[in-house]
Nucleic acid binder design. Structure first.
Lengths: 115, 115
DNA sequence: TTGACATGCAACCATTAAGTTGCCTATTTT
DNA sequence: AAAATAGGCAACTTAATGGTTGCATGTCAA
């Protein structure tokens, strides 16, 4: 388990990254299709490419998105781990333990049908 | 299941409320002890009472905190439901189901030993 | 090699947001 | 009633943030 100080800082970067609706939409887009380029993500977002680039940078710093340079393109991928970690930490932090446990169990059971 | 438009708006209010570290600390405080007053929450936060009041207002609007007037005092309580809902929605939204299920199970088991 | 395409970088602008100060209202308490 | 306590309201300051424009760099294709 991590030290509290570090955890707080990490949380802060992630929460702030998630606070903007445009960034959440970008995550939606990357969830729908991984490996999209900056230009690809920009088209349809009624925002300049540069603005999208800034958002992607924030998402990358929050470790919510990872990217790979490929020639003159940069491919972006969603990184679900921090979202998962933070969400679960907050469930266990702010919920009555039994509620969290029940939800977790429900999730667990539902998960069995997916593979 | 809610309509997507409404959900997005709700999400936005909650995410923005959670984006500020002072507000997350307030939630921590209310989790540790419910029914605290504005003044009580202010003491120890190196912030003016008015600033705390603004934060509490934002948390209330996000439905993360509820309050009850009691004489000249206002008592505040954490409302875990939206956190739970949003966290779970994001787990299922952005994670491979089996990863979420495994983590959830792990959390459930470990949760028994947590403070 | 030249032009087109994909991205990077930097300055700038407008708005929001966090926090402050100052004052007012309401409820206790003595 | 008067003083003390708890909170509400509003204007203001400052810094962060989301977005823009303009130009530079790197890569691919003809």
């Amino acid at each position: 388990m991590q030290l509290n100080g570090y955890r707080t800082i990490d949380d802060d970067v992630v929460f702030r990254a998630l606070a903007d609706p445009s960034r959440r939409r970008l995550l939606d887009g990357l969830q729908a299709q991984g490996g999209q380029t900056l230009g690809g993500l920009t088209s349809g977002l009624s925002m300049t490419r540069q603005a999208v680039a800034k958002h992607l940078d924030i998402l990358e710093r929050a470790n919510l998105v990872s990217s790979r340079r490929c020639g003159r393109e940069k491919l972006h991928f969603i990184n679900p781990i921090p979202i998962n970690a933070i969400a679960e930490r907050w469930i266990s932090k702010f919920d009555q333990p039994h509620v969290a446990a029940l939800s977790a169990l429900k999730q667990t059971l539902e998960g069995e049908f997916d593979d």
